[in-house]
Design a protein around this nucleic acid. Structure first.
Length: 266
DNA sequence: GCGAAATGGGAAA
DNA sequence: TTCCCCTTTCGCC
């Protein structure tokens, strides 16, 4: 489930479980054995999300643990006692109260301060961080002919947006994914940014992505189902909630992109 | 039951 | 551009 909102939610949860506590670290699978033994016994100082990346800091230890879930990665947490490890368990962290298991990440590694700097320096502004500056993203967007649908997924332009937010934000602003970045005026970008901040904050609160408003849902009451949560994402061939045109799908930046040909003319 | 696709991205080619 | 990481879910038999 990892778009940016999910990682920020994990950072909050893990911060609550781990900050100020000594952790026992263990890599039953073995692929992070050396790193785990270096973390083992240290007190966690901080947990933060930057885009889709998680960084964990430790007292008296300048390296940070970097985790990127990729497409398959998953965390599980619980109260001790922890269940017996099974399968490909990359990392288990345990405090005296709780345990945290990590499986299938694309990155689980220790980074020294210089490497952390390299990582954060190549990420664009993250709509979920207070230190984010949307102007930095706009300067990249405005000078290229790359399609907006590709720019929104480029983590060096904007950090944290994934395939759902990409499709949905473009729909909500009536912009074709294939429009060039240079054809987006600044006012329009700022409106999109503000909308992203609002949608992604809501995602952090609720743990899910909902971009539809109640009047546009098939069922207008209660918490919308997943199928009712989106305007275009994975709705290929279904009628647009606004104009009834069949939703289209294509490929952009090596991912499936969805759009409404009526509401998002090229 | 099985294969493909998937809320991602880095390395290899 | 293709592969791969290594898991879950969904759609089609």
């Amino acid at each position: 489930m990892p778009e940016g909102h999910a990682l920020h939610r994990l950072a909050v949860e893990h911060g609550r479980l781990l900050t100020g506590r000594a952790v026992a670290a263990f890599s039953p699978q073995g692929r992070f054995a050396a790193g785990a033994s270096r973390i083992d016994g240290h007190v966690v100082k901080s947990v933060e999300a930057r885009g889709k990346h998680l960084l964990y800091g430790f007292e008296g230890f300048s390296d940070r643990l970097h985790v990127h879930l990729g497409l398959y990665g998953r965390f599980q947490t619980g109260d001790i006692p922890a269940p017996a490890p099974f399968g490909a368990l990359r990392l288990r962290l345990a405090t005296e109260n709780s345990w945290l298991d990590l499986r299938g990440p694309s990155a689980c590694e220790l980074l020294d301060p210089a490497a952390v700097h390299l990582l954060t320096a190549r990420l664009g502004p993250d709509p979920l961080r207070v230190d984010a500056d949307p102007e930095v993203a706009y300067r990249r967007i405005a000078k290229v002919n790359t399609p907006l649908g590709a720019l929104l997924l480029d983590q060096s332009v904007l950090a944290g947006v994934g395939n759902i937010y990409r499709a949905e934000i473009l729909f909500r602003h009536g912009i074709s994914p294939f429009r060039a970045g240079s054809k987006l005026d600044e006012e329009h970008w700022h409106a999109m940014w503000r909308d992203l901040v609002r949608l992604m904050k809501s995602g952090v609160r609720t743990g899910r992505i909902v971009t539809t408003v109640p009047g546009h849902r098939d069922r207008s009451r209660g918490i919308p189902s997943r199928a009712d949560s989106f305007y275009v994402y994975q709705r290929t061939g279904m009628p647009c909630r606004i104009c009834r045109s069949p939703i289209r799908a294509g490929e952009l930046a090596a991912r499936t992109v969805f759009w409404c040909p009526g509401c998002q003319p090229h």
